[in-house]
Amino acid sequence: MASNAQPVSAKTPVTLREVAASAGVSVATASKALNGQGRMTAETRERIRETAQRLGFRPNSLAQSLLRRRSFTVGLLTNDTYGRFSLPVMSGISDALVDKGVSVFLCNVEDDKRLGQLHVDAMLDKRVDGIIATGKRIDRHLPVDLSNLGVPTIYAFTQPDPGAIAFVSDDAGGARLAVEHFCRLGRRRIAHVTGPASFAVVHARAQAYRDVLTEKGLPVMEPLLGSWSEAWGHEAVKKLFDGKLSKSGDEKPDAVFCGNDQIARGVIDALRERGLGVPDDVGVIGFDNWQIVAEATRPPLTSVDMNLAALGREAGLTLLSLVGGEPAEPGIRKLPCRLVVRQSCGRLPDG
């Protein structure tokens, strides 16, 4: 059957000369108006901009880059294959940069040194204004050397090079938020189930857990370390309720603070199988506030949010300052977490 559809072809870009002719001004005046330069009335400048928008005119970004010696692009490197942490960070970075006309492109280096170097070389070839490195944990460096690149480099949620600028979440502060909230709710036998000992955040959160309970004069149970999985959360409940882990006796926990949301979900399922109600019998708080998990848990899970979008935004703004020639002190900046309260932790004693 014959088709009357017209063949698809690329449209010829609208030129600055066409914008100027349509607006009734010279090419030089049109150029100055669209670049925010020159002296002219506000009415003229606005008329030229409206004409350019109506005609679909797009400035030659390559020419602008050569003129300003900037590419208005930022490279984002990560080894977080699933994007669990890097995507919220990227969202914050984009939020900081979009109003400045800067684009972000993401490259996944996985854990491959050669792939990482290929991506870095490609970014430098494209004359990126700067690079932001992020990852799936804060105590491991990406498998690529980012020192002495000749462009500003910021680290966000990954281990930085010495003397660099880095942004990480305050894991100890986040753990304090969770345990102190349990204390306000009247919970007195609070257990901690978390991930592997090979993670620095595990020790930071566990120490904050011990510190808060000691300050409150409450019994401290030895934190249970395992994997970042629901299966481990399920197994940990058996250890908590079938063993003697409290230094003050064999009383069973009335609250469990978990190292991530997946562990917390496993804990809740295991408690339910034992006939224990959440939060009536045992309150549960997770960590990460991974919404796809926290909001689907029954009951919905209270969790510590690491504010990764805000972390990314701060990293983006700092990179912009460096690109603009403003100095910044090297070092690690810890950004506060927040507690997102849902139904799994219970209510205050007075309701």
Rank of each mutant, 00 (worst) to 15 (best):
A2Q: 01
Q6V: 08
P7Y: 04
L16N: 08
L16I: 12
R17Q: 10
E18P: 02
A21E: 14
A21G: 00
S22E: 15
S22K: 15
T29L: 13
S31A: 03
Q37M: 05
A52R: 14
Q53I: 02
Q53C: 01
R54G: 05
R70K: 11
R70F: 00
F85H: 06
L87T: 12
M90H: 07
S103E: 09
V109L: 11
D112S: 14
A122M: 14
A133M: 14
T134K: 07
P143R: 10
V144E: 06
S147L: 05
P160F: 12
P160L: 12
S169H: 09
D170R: 08
D171M: 03
A172S: 14
R176E: 14
G186T: 04
R188F: 10
A191G: 10
P196F: 05
Q207S: 12
K216P: 02
G217A: 13
L224R: 00
S227N: 09
A231E: 14
H234R: 13
L240N: 00
P253E: 01
F257H: 06
N260A: 02
Q262V: 01
A264R: 06
D269I: 06
V278P: 09
D280Q: 15
D281P: 11
V293P: 02
A294G: 00
E295A: 05
S303I: 05
V304A: 01
A310Y: 05
E314N: 12
T318E: 03
L335N: 03
